[in-house]
Structures are given as structure tokens and as C-alpha cells.
Amino acid sequence: MSETISALNNAGYSGLVRIDETGLQGMITLRGDLSLTTVKKVATTASGATFPGQRQITVSDTGALAWMSPDELLILCPYEEVSDRLAKMTKTLGNTNALAVDVSDARAIFAISGEDARDVMAKLCPVDLHPEVFKPGEIRRTRLAQIAAAIWMEDDDNFRLICFRSVAQYAYDVLKVAAAAGSAAGFHAAQDPV
């Protein structure tokens, strides 16, 4: 067997914030009518997380469940467990008009960590990232400079970002530019309540 590696093989950079391509991440896309009990059950069982509301991401010990659109969910789980969890999902779904697909190798995932993380992300995404508006628990599909991405916060200083594997290098490079030493914007820090 060949050795499976992620898009940038855990590349990392330290600037205004720390940027890491965090390696192999299991990802399963589930499309279907999200009001169906079977679809809900499959999603929560496979992720171990509670069913998310609109634009929410819920976390479990071994994964997460993200609302991607009115008919799409994303299940995060350990890379090694994807085929197992996917097989169970497909079996439970049976004849339900829904589709579960392993997209782990089609994507790349990054961590953006540090006090200036909101500033760095705000340079690249047309999203209001004010601490009172964008909080942990919300996932936002948006534009990262010239590519599509999904971003969410694990806590107040830590973003996670998913993009297509084919543009992982672009995402990494543009994040490094936004986090270059000497480019601090100091915008969100200045918004903090005194």
C-alpha cells in the first residue's frame, strides 16, 4: 500500500498567527432532505454530534456535524474510520433518497490560531467576524480571497478552514500573506469591550 498524505503534508507557518495544514481528516458529505428522520439519524450517529441548526456546527469527541446548505451536511470523523462509518450510513439510508459520499481526499483542512486570527481571516473573507457576531458554533461557507472555503471557530482564537484539495497551496499561501509579520491590523482587538 502507498502511504496516504494530505495535500500539504502538515505544512506550518508562524507569523501574526500560526497556520497549520492539519493533515488527513475524514469528511463525509450527506445530501438529502434534512427533515427526514432517517437522514437526521444517520448524520447524528455517524458524527456522534447533535443535529445542527442553520449554519451551525456541533462537535463530539470523535468528530463534528456541520450544516452546509438546506440539503447538505458535512460529517467530520477520524480519517481511518470513514469507510466504516460510511458503510453503516449507506446501510441505514437504504432506499431513502439521500447520498453519502467520502470526500476526505477531495479537501484540505487548516487551523488558524492566535490572538490576531479574526483580523487575518477578515482580510480574506467578506464576513463580519466581530466577536459578538461570529462565534464558535457557527460555520460559514464563504470566499477566501479567490476560492470557496468553509470556516468556523473552535474557540475565540482558533479558526478551522476547509477548502478543496486542488487549491490547498493557494489557501496556504494567501493565509501566509494575510499573516505576514508587520501586517497587524489590530481591528478586532480594538473592538474588545474594556
Partner: peptide, 12 residues
């Protein structure tokens, strides 16, 4: 109207 996001023109 589907995800409730206030989308900037460049996201559309």
C-alpha cells in the same frame, strides 16, 4: 433566503 447569510456581492 436559504442560509440567512448577509452575502456580499463578491460571494454571489
Amino acid at each position: 433566503p436559504y442560509c440567512g447569510v448577509q452575502a456580499d456581492e463578491t460571494e454571489l
